[in-house]
Write a protein that binds this DNA or RNA. Structure first.
Length: 530
RNA sequence: GCCCCCGUAGCUCAGUGGAUCAGAGCGGUUGCCUUCUAAGCAAUAGGUCGCAGGUUCGAAUCCUGCCGGGGGCGCCA
């Protein structure tokens, strides 16, 4: 496809530097399947009208297999159309690829880490955490489908002031004393204290807050893992913040920054010199490192010591301010900051009835993920999050997600899959195999349209992987489901016409493969029956 | 004050590094089940793409400035 256009380069190369040759999909099917806008871009440097250029180029085009006519359209497009016979022939490779259909080797086994969720082990996952969890997981899935070597990591903040307060709060609850200033007042900690008390007393008769914090984190992580499991999310590794402070890695890193003149002591604290108007604290006056300090050690560890080419971090939008300074510190350490990509996931508000409740991490209030999973189930949670781009604020409509009815967009896609599965089962004996000649019977607008949509699937996966935009999968799935429903409505599959039946069953099989793979990449179930 | 995200149909949101259409779902109105699942299909109403300039043959899309909503700018996490 692209190579075909390269062939014309020689013709124009003499004049000037060529703009990139781009073959894009047409937005309007009336204009064919692909279009080239090169003539419009060349018009100025060639000093010829774009239409003339288009005609000369079109005449020289060597089309690869599968393309029918080349058309010129004002003001200077070259439009290409796929041959129906070529479309039909693609059903065979889709069938052969099966669950592999849509995968690519784009990533060439490059090691990439996706770090997501990373909620503190001092309380349950809130529903607001789930958006980042889903986005991170699907980014990981899409990268895996593009043959990146992906590791999913959960970064556990298991040290510092918050953990100390956590332990002290647990102790206070057990002893029925007041929770310390700034401590954890939540019901969760109260219940946890009660649950841990017998073991805690056994392990530490004095109820050492450190032991309590340890037990509490262990317990909390267990429940977090369980919540994530229900969303079909599993991390390969839980990385402990405390492991960064082994006395060598941290010492070496600070030494490196110091040698570059980027560390100063002032007011009893240790600062990273940004060179901008405001420096950043690395070590507080009480000697404890800040999160920023840990972030530096952590990302250096991933990108330098552990050898990941890229680290894709999924953060809440409220951490936006940290991106710049972590990247800056990495650069000082000689690490290309572009290797760290931060996906900022915007906040979620929950709509229940007519009421919208904003969920902010800071506000600390909100529905837990567990409660939401109990109420609506994992499929709507995943699908709804994927129906929004990560950088858009979104409103989660609980009532809609909960509806087991046609209004719920999840079912639209799942129903398309179930219908196909049903037809395939119904017609099993009639469609054992179809030859290429039979496939020629597939010539209605609905059948050809369905094929066109299916054939975009590999591009969708690739684009989602390149842009790190998992919502593209959901929008594609919706389109594909629409094409399937229209086909189903207008083309009776199982009839007395055996060859036609066989051909249509082949189409159903390919379509089910495609939508099944799409749902699978999103981690949404694809039922055979609804 | 500075930085980031958003502003597109009544509602929730796609599209946005130019040309080739302003779109989907929900909600409104109206049709379609003797045949493989109507959790579906089809039709219809509904929008100065926040405002104002600018660049261009062409701007929802790029630039500038405003307005509005959200988030950040801690020796908090």
């Amino acid at each position: 496809m692209r190579q075909a256009v390269e062939n014309i380069d020689g013709w124009a190369a003499a004049t000037t530097v060529l703009p990139a040759v781009v073959v894009e999909r047409t937005q309007n099917p009336q204009h064919g399947d692909y279009s080239v806008t090169l003539p419009l871009k060349l018009a100025r440097s060639l000093r010829q009208p774009p239409l003339v250029i288009a005609e000369r180029l079109a005449g020289r085009l060597e089309l690869p297999d599968g393309f029918a006519e080349v058309a010129i359209a004002a003001p200077g497009f070259i439009n290409l159309r796929l041959l129906p016979s070529w479309l039909r022939a693609q059903l065979v490779p889709i069938k052969e690829a099966g669950t592999q259909w849509g995968r690519s080797s784009l990533g060439h086994d490059i090691p990439v880490q996706v770090e997501f969720v990373s909620s503190n082990p001092t309380g349950p996952l809130l529903f607001s955490h789930a958006r980042g969890a889903v986005v991170g997981d699907v980014v990981a899935r899409v990268l895996e489908a593009s043959r990146f070597k992906v590791q999913r990591e959960y970064y556990v903040n298991d040290k510092g002031r918050q953990i100390r307060l956590f332990g002290e709060s647990l102790r206070a609850r057990i002893l029925d004393e007041p929770v310390p200033e700034g401590g954890y007042q939540s019901e969760y900690v109260r219940d946890l204290a009660q649950e841990l008390e017998p073991r805690a007393r056994e392990m530490s008769s004095s109820l050492d807050p450190r032991v309590l914090a340890e037990l509490g984190m262990e317990q909390t992580m267990t429940s977090i893992r369980e919540d994530l499991r229900r969303l079909d999310i599993k991390h390969d590794q839980e990385f402990l913040e405390s492991s960064l402070y082994d006395g060598r890695w941290d010492g070496e890193t600070w030494q490196e920054l110091r040698s570059k003149g980027r560390v100063v002591e002032r007011d009893g604290a240790v600062w990273f010199v940004t060179g901008a108007d405001k420096d950043e604290v690395l070590f507080k006056r009480d000697g404890e490192p800040t999160y920023f300090a840990s972030d530096i050690l952590y990302h250096r560890d991933k990108l330098e010591r552990r050898g990941f080419q890229r680290s894709i971090d999924v953060w809440g939008a409220d951490h936006q301010g940290q991106v710049g300074r972590v990247k800056q510190a990495l650069e000082v350490l000689g690490i290309d900051p572009a290797r760290l990509q931060v996906l900022l996931v915007q906040l979620v508000s929950v709509k229940r009835g007519a009421e919208a409740v904003r969920m902010s991490r800071r506000a600390g209030v909100g529905i837990t993920l567990k409660e939401m999973l109990d109420e609506v189930g994992p499929d709507p949670v995943r699908y709804f999050f994927l129906l929004r781009s990560a950088d858009a604020h979104m409103q989660f409509d609980v009532d809609l997600a909960k509806q087991q009815s046609s209004d719920n967009p999840v079912y639209y896609a799942q129903y398309a899959h179930a219908r196909l599965a049903n037809v395939l089962a119904f017609g099993a004996d009639a469609g054992a195999d179809a030859g290429v000649s039979d496939l020629e019977r597939l010539d209605s607008e609905w059948e050809l349209e369905l094929m066109r949509v299916m054939l975009r699937w590999p591009d969708v996966v690739r684009e989602a992987a390149e842009s790190l935009e998992p919502h593209r999968l959901a929008f594609y799935t919706d389109e594909l489901a629409a094409a399937i429903h229209r086909f189903y409505k207008n083309c009776r599959v199982v009839t007395d016409d055996r060859p036609l039946t066989a051909a249509r069953l082949q189409l159903c099989l390919a379509a089910r493969t495609t939508i099944g793979n799409a749902l699978g990449l999103m981690g949404v179930s694809a039922p055979d029956r609804m």
